[in-house]
Design a protein around this nucleic acid. Structure first.
Lengths: 223, 223
DNA sequence: CCAAAAGTGTTATTGATACACCCATGC
DNA sequence: GCATGGGTGTATCAATAACACTTTTGG
């Protein structure tokens, strides 16, 4: 029963932490921010913050994204709530972790962090992070892998129009192993979620690739 | 960044709410408690409560289970954190919802609620609950259904020793449709998780059934 | 001997995997 | 004309789904 009247113990703090993924040069990268204050001063940590009055959890995530990363996420999913009593050395803080996917912009450069003190880091070379943030990132990677197996989660990491080889690359990077081109394309077409844009894109001295788009902009479970 | 120093807005409250499932006479039932206080005085609601200082979220769930239901859960999983600003009409309260499975005791009777003001209710005949608790129960049922498809979640709803027909019944109740006996048993045996106890059980005028046990006491993903 | 649940295999269908060549382009 | 990525189909294997009869017990 959610009863507020009998609180005689101190309220825990509640924060949001975000695991923001993107793909850069065939690597899965996560956005980190350098902590300005104690504890863990100077350590890297996940972008996060407190929830404002009257603000939904999702709205808080979007606000934090804009403040800390200078961008708004294309896909957003609640991950898990971490509440070990000692996870913050100062006081009890419970954090609701979110998984965020940023569309990978073809154009190189503008994906570089917009906010000073932030940096994209490959998940394979993650430093020791503040608080329990390493655990949170691992949990997020696990979730992302699992979802790659049974959903079109790749949509969150791609621009509106993309080549099938881009889509395949996204899944390969998430899963950590190569996929068969013909089987991958067969399966993707079978979902009925892809539509041709009619446009073709030429990169370098190759046969031009058809650009595709997802009919549904939402992440959806396949089969 | 989990920074407590710059809180100038009021902290939200944090609660735990539990969706406690069991199976009674081939029905999936959930434990409800009648609210003694405003708001929603007299309404049914999910067992819940505040988190004590220094208490982990899981420990809080176990404590609430014991207090409100007079029993400890066999399976426990964090469901989702609900934080809509208006979900509690008095003040901002964020709740971390847990899914709990109670082993169905063969012996009829002792599963009846131990604590006054609590009642088991079939999920198909759920009344209008306090707060957003209907939404939480729906979410829990969805999760349970999904897990029935790819895990041995049934373990949480069964006593230590059980007949294969009991196990099948559990899955049928969760999924809401009948399963083929031979295919079900083939699949279950193929997991390698079942072991014969050697004991047989005779109920009524029938051929006695072998009692089985799960080798792993944990819920595990199949395939 | 009858009613009721326990137990047991085979076939058909479906989905997943493995695998190799031609095409269009820029230089 | 050559290097590079784009694009396509078939055969095998594994998993799933459909389906019916015999066994053991108590009454």
């Amino acid at each position: 029963v959610s009863d507020t009247k009998d609180i005689h113990y101190e309220k825990p703090g509640v924060t949001i932490d975000t695991v923001i993924f993107t793909i850069v040069e065939d690597r899965l990268e996560v956005l980190l921010v350098k902590r300005a204050d104690v504890p863990f001063q100077g350590s890297w940590s996940l972008p996060g913050g407190f929830i404002l009055q009257g603000e939904s959890l999702e709205a808080a995530v979007q606000r934090i994204l804009l403040d800390k990363a200078g961008m708004s996420g294309s896909y957003l999913e609640q991950l898990y709530t971490f509440g070990q009593p000692d996870r913050d050395p100062r006081s009890r803080v419970i954090t609701v972790a979110y998984l965020v996917l940023l569309p990978w912009k073809r154009t190189p450069g503008p994906l570089s962090p917009k906010v000073s003190g932030t940096e994209w880091t490959a998940v394979h070379y993650l430093p020791k992070l503040a608080f329990d943030h390493n655990q949170i990132v691992l949990y997020a990677v696990e979730r992302l892998r699992a979802k790659a197996g049974y959903s079109n989660i790749g949509i969150g990491l791609l621009p509106d129009k993309f080549r099938l080889s881009d889509l395949q690359r996204v899944y390969e990077v998430i899963l950590g192993h190569d996929l068969d081109k013909r089987n991958f394309r067969k399966k993707m077409h079978a979902t009925g979620l892809l539509e041709e844009t009619g446009e073709k894109e030429i990169i370098g001295a190759h046969r031009p690739a058809m650009l595709f788009r997802f009919k549904e902009k939402k992440v959806v479970n396949l089969d």
